[in-house]
C-alpha cells in the first residue's frame, strides 16, 4: 500500500510530532502513570470519535454526541445516587444514550431529515433532559469505580479498556458485510439503495452505534471527573468531528478508517497537554491550542486531498 495514500498517515505524523514535543517539554510524559492520566482524560473523546467516524463513513453527521455524554453522565450519577450498583446504573445510562441514537437514526434514516439539523435538534433534547434531571453539577460516583478507572486493571491503564471495547466492537462489525455496505452507502446513497442495501436500517444502525460508543465514553468520563454535570460533555459534540477530520475521514462519506479517528482524538488531547506543559500563560492557552488545531486540520486536509475545482 502506498503510505502517502493512506488516509491515516498525516494524523499519524501529527501525533508523533506532538508526542515528541510533549516528551521534550515534560520529561516524564512517556511514563506509564503520565500516559495513564492522559488516556483517562481523553478516552471519552476517543470513544465518541470512533462513533462519530462510523456515522461519517456512511455519509451522515452527528453533532448530538456531546449532549449524549451529558445525559449518560447525569443518568449514571443519578442512578448511583438512588443506590443502584455501578454496573446496572452504567448499563441503564448507556441504554438511555442509545435511545437518543435510535431517535436520531429513526428520524434520519426512515423520515429522511437532514442529519445535521436532526442531530442539532436532538442534542437540544438530550441536553435539555440532562439539565432537567440535574439542573446544577453535583452527585458523586462510587469511589471504587473512580479509583478503578484512574488506576490499572490487569496491569494496563483502565481507560485503555474503554477505548478497546469501542474500537473492537467496530472492528468486529466492520468485518461483517455491514462494513462493506456502510462504505458503499457513504460513497453513493442511491446506488446503495439500487444494490439492495437497506439504506434506512444502515443509517439507523450508524447513529445507534455512535450513541453506544459515546455512551461508553461517557461512563469513562464519569470515572475521570467523578461527579455529575449536565454540561460536562458539550465540547465533545464538535471535537469528535474535528478528531475525525484530522484523522483523514471525509465528511462526504465513504473514506477513512476508525484508527484515524482515534489518533485524531489523541492529537487534540496532546495539543491541550502540550499547551499546558509549555507554560503558556493561562489567558493565551485557548488561543494557542485553537491555532494549533487549526494548523493541524490545514495540514491534514492539504496532505490528504487536493481541493478539486471541477471533476
Amino acid at each position: 500500500m502506498n503510505i502517502l495514500k493512506w488516509t491515516t498517515f498525516p494524523v499519524l505524523v501529527l501525533v508523533i510530532v506532538m508526542a515528541v514535543i510533549n516528551s521534550v517539554l515534560t520529561p516524564g510524559f512517556l511514563t506509564m502513570s503520565s500516559l495513564s492520566g492522559f488516556l483517562g482524560s481523553y478516552a471519552p473523546l476517543v470513544c465518541a470519535a470512533v462513533g462519530s467516524a462510523v456515522v461519517l463513513f456512511g455519509g451522515g453527521i452527528d453533532i448530538s454526541l456531546g449532549s449524549i455524554v451529558c445525559l449518560v453522565n447525569v443518568v449514571f450519577i443519578t442512578m448511583q445516587g438512588y443506590g443502584w450498583n455501578v454496573l446496572t446504573s452504567a448499563a441503564l445510562a448507556v441504554l438511555v444514550g442509545v435511545g437518543v441514537g435510535a431517535l436520531n437514526g429513526f428520524v434520519i434514516g426512515f423520515l429522511r431529515v437532514n442529519p445535521l439539523l436532526t442531530t442539532f435538534s436532538t442534542s437540544s433534547v438530550a441536553a435539555g433532559v440532562a439539565l432537567w434531571i440535574m439542573p446544577t453539577p453535583g452527585g458523586q460516583a462510587s469511589m471504587d469505580f473512580v479509583t478503578w478507572y484512574n488506576g490499572n486493571w490487569l496491569g494496563i491503564p483502565t481507560p485503555v479498556y474503554f477505548i478497546a471495547v469501542v474500537w473492537l466492537l467496530w472492528l468486529f462489525l466492520s468485518k461483517t458485510p455491514i462494513g462493506i455496505w456502510l462504505y458503499a452507502l457513504g460513497c453513493d446513497e442511491r446506488k446503495a439503495f439500487a444494490s439492495a442495501i437497506s439504506v434506512a436500517w444502515l443509517q439507523f444502525f450508524t447513529y445507534v452505534f455512535a450513541a453506544l460508543a459515546t455512551g461508553i465514553g461517557a461512563i469513562a468520563l464519569t470515572g475521570s471527573v467523578g461527579s455529575g454535570d449536565p454540561l460536562v460533555g458539550l465540547p465533545i459534540s464538535l471535537n469528535a468531528i474535528a478528531a475525525c477530520v484530522i484523522g483523514g475521514i471525509s465528511l462526504m462519506g465513504g473514506r477513512g478508517d476508525s484508527f484515524g479517528a482515534i489518533l485524531g482524538a489523541l492529537f487534540l488531547g496532546l495539543v491541550s497537554t502540550t499547551v499546558l506543559a509549555a507554560h503558556v500563560p493561562p489567558f493565551y492557552q485557548d488561543l494557542v491550542s485553537g491555532v494549533i488545531v487549526l494548523l493541524g486540520v490545514i495540514g491534514s486536509v492539504s496532505l490528504s486531498r487536493k481541493p478539486k475545482l471541477v471533476s
Binding site: 428520524v107 436532526t118 435538534s121 437540544s124 438530550a126 441536553a127 435539555g128 439539565l131 432537567w132 449536565p230
Partner: peptide
Amino acid sequence: LPQGVRELVQGLTLL
C-alpha cells in the same frame, strides 16, 4: 418551566 425542559421542548419543536 425550568431551563432543561425549555431546551427539551425547543429541540422537539424544531424536530
